[in-house]
Design a protein around this nucleic acid. Structure first.
Length: 153
DNA sequence: GCCAACGTTGGC
DNA sequence: GCCAACGTTGGC
């Protein structure tokens, strides 16, 4: 399958890009939305490029790039009774929630704000604006390239 | 902190 | 299967 492009959202208070840079890679756990899960389970492949977005931030913005480093596997937090993401309906044989692992690639020299994207030709139609609440969502190759270009100047 | 959007749950 | 109630996300 051709390489695909994605965005992931994280609140900087919870897991900022700087933390991913320190950790090198991280499991994208705790996603409890079926659409986002389906993207991870069915479509995200090792090597796919990922825009890293800070939500609930001032301003909300794309801040850098990551890459899928491990394909879909069960999210362990669903089996952990102590986790706030525990799902009693999930079993190891039939896990409900899947995750991928992403690795740090780069931090933009400047953040590309949501507002700027809205005003930029070629980005007005980003899925982010149509369905803003998905924590994992596809972006087109063209959108990916435009955001990267804005972020590196 | 407010509130709109929207996904999920549960009664019927 | 419908839909109202409820909870969560996330921009502002």
């Amino acid at each position: 399958m051709a390489k695909q492009y994605w965005l992931v959202k994280s609140e900087p208070d919870v897991y900022p890009l700087e933390q991913l840079k320190k950790d090198g890679h991280t499991g994208w756990t705790s996603v409890r939305n079926y659409q986002a899960r389906n993207f991870m389970r069915d479509q995200m492949k090792v090597g796919d490029r990922v825009l890293y977005y800070h939500s609930n931030a001032e301003p909300a913005a794309f801040v850098g790039i990551a890459e899928v480093s491990r394909a879909s596997h069960p999210d362990p937090t669903q089996f952990d009774a102590k986790s706030e993401y525990y799902d009693p309906k999930s079993t190891k044989d039939a896990p409900t929630w899947m995750m991928v692992e992403i690795k740090y690639v780069d931090t933009f020299t400047r953040a590309v704000s949501r507002d700027e994207c809205k005003k930029t030709k070629g980005l007005e139609k980003m899925s982010l604006f149509k369905q803003g609440r998905l924590s994992v969502a596809p972006v087109t190759e063209a959108e990916f390239e435009i955001v990267c270009r804005l972020g590196s100047r």
